[in-house]
Design a protein around this nucleic acid. Sequence first.
DNA 1: TCGAATAACTAAG
DNA 2: TCTTAGTTATTCG
Length: 262
Amino acid sequence: MSLDRFVNRLKRKCRDQDSEGENQAKSAKQASVSSAVTVNGGISRAGSLAWKEIRAENLDLDYVRLFTKSEADSILQDLEKSVTYNTGQLARVMMFGKWVDIPRKQTAYGEEGLTYTFSGNTVPARPWIPSLTRIRDILTSLTGVHFNFVLVNRYKDGCDYMGEHKDDEKDLSPDCPIASLSFGQPRDFYFKHQDSRGKNATRTVERVSLVLEHGGLLLMKAPTNQYWYHALPQRKRLGQVRVNLTFRKMNPAMCKPLKTEL
DNA sequence: TCGAATAACTAAG
DNA sequence: TCTTAGTTATTCG
């Protein structure tokens, strides 16, 4: 599988870079990520990746093209074959007195007992599957965070989208980054500060936009989620599928009990 | 200046 | 407060 080659490639790159003694001028934040990034044998591999830091008031994001095109192609293919999406009631939300289908497909995987709550529905995490544990383990070795949950969103084309929202901090372990991996159709993604939303905005804060590419990883770090809403807007001319994996570290004690069977 | 896409806003419970 | 759809305003090419 290409992921093994991926890890080997990173190890090779890091050996090369260690001998060159690079990476002295990293920011403090970047250094804290780097120090956590080790694989078997303690080889640091943060330096081999071209991290892009995105900063604004109380916004702290790191973005990197983690996988090559062929690796990402293979992962997407794998996910399309193995991921099961929620259907029926679990794929609807109540809007103005009627149930509407959410404008994308969604599901979750993770450790037993974890749930997530979406607009009134509390949905259990499905048991881990190999295509997701492989990726989870890469992210854990990259970030040092033990992710125990992943939310999967599938956007069939540019008409599927996700409205502005903040991830529910109540279920999340505080200060743990959220790792968002994208495969397939590159899509615009933006962050909007809570003080500058809607007509009751108290001030103007410029919104932060980026493109989430095929094989790209976005780390959303504290306190971003406290202050900023994020969304994946419609882009009607785009016709390809995008699958997004959002890995989180959930606090099991904070998960709502299940009301619904899968 | 037109038409389409995008952005902003509003609606119930 | 959170969710999306529908309407209207604005921007883009």
